[in-house]
Design a protein around this nucleic acid. Structure first.
Ligand code: SF4
Ligand code: SF4
Lengths: 161, 161
DNA sequence: GCATATCTGGATAGTAAACATCCGGATATG
DNA sequence: CATATCCGGATGTTTACTATCCAGATATGC
């Protein structure tokens, strides 16, 4: 039970784009080269970010991806949900057959709330709130506090810092 | 990214043992039959619970499993950690090679704290705290509030309620 | 217009993790 | 001793994650 590496890829790519600063779209190949990632696979993650409204994509030559909004307006939750989907962390497997499979609840309310589900749901809500409370700008600021020279390594190509 | 079904199995099995009430050990086969689970696989989960100190196992004929402590003293976090292990939800894949692989930090403190890791760690901590704040007794109480007749379905064999 | 560069999205393949079964050995009952 | 059960390793199955590939669409620049 762990988050996929797509989250890490997305966070770093978004930070890279922010560090670049200018509004120029950056192609997948370049973004992937920075961290030696698979361009094709990274592209799939970026498409997810586009769908979620975190990135804008520019097709055609000189195209690529650019930030759709500033880092201040992107929370860690946005990134996680964009990449991993918004399925619940805990999903009941109906081992007690008490979920009344097939029965449609009146759109929004559950007739028989499951205590296990609600308990796990409360915990997930706390997780999501904590993620939502942290923006990518916060993460960037915290990162720069420890390694001020961390910017501009996209331009340099393959810098390790 | 989702919790395994072992969590659901464990929670229900622990509740079943509590509903049984008496300190008699219950064999895996019976616990599995209640929810039509695989006895062999459930046994593996139960062994995890034993290792975590949530269950006691009694070998030999008339053996089985019994609660090691009352439900009040077992939190949802205890169950999740026992079944899923205590690996972090987010694990860095070192895509920036900034983790200085192989470098041993002085036991407890990280020389170069990673902002991404700490952000995800904060969220996981919130999740764990919310899980730790809910005991199995709480879950049982909440379940009984909605379905008071839910107890004693172990004795009945295969009751659906 | 045409060659090029790039995103889009589906098909496919490889890899890892989760899920499940099986069996021999140990332990306790009666 | 025969039986019932836990224990844990070996093994197989299924699912999810990771990664590659390719045809189609879109934009640039000559
Ligand atoms: S009690 Fe809740 S978690 Fe368990 S099977 Fe029913 S709905 Fe699922
Ligand atoms: S910045 Fe943090 S998450 Fe990213 S590679 Fe380094 S240690 Fe891992």
């Amino acid at each position: 039970m762990r988050t996929g590496k797509g989250v890490e890829w997305a966070v770093h790519t978004l930070l890279n784009l922010a560090w670049l600063g200018d509004g120029e779209p950056v192609p997948t190949a370049r973004l992937a080269a920075v961290h030696d990632l698979s361009a094709s696979y990274l592209n799939k993650q970026l498409q997810q970010l586009v769908k979620a409204g975190l990135l804008e994509s520019v097709p055609g030559a000189r195209g690529g991806f650019r930030l759709a909004r500033p880092l201040e307006a992107v929370s860690m939750l946005d990134v996680v949900l964009a990449v991993e989907g918004d399925d619940p962390l805990f999903r009941c497997a109906e081992i007690r057959r008490c979920g009344t499979i097939g029965e449609r609840v009146p759109a929004g309310g559950f007739s028989r709330p499951c205590a296990v589900n609600t308990a796990m749901g409360r915990a997930e809500l706390a997780w999501r709130k904590a993620l939502a409370a942290q923006s990518l700008a916060d993460v960037r600021a915290e990162a720069e506090a420890h390694a001020p020279a961390v910017g501009s390594y996209v331009r340099g190509g393959f810098g390790r810092d």
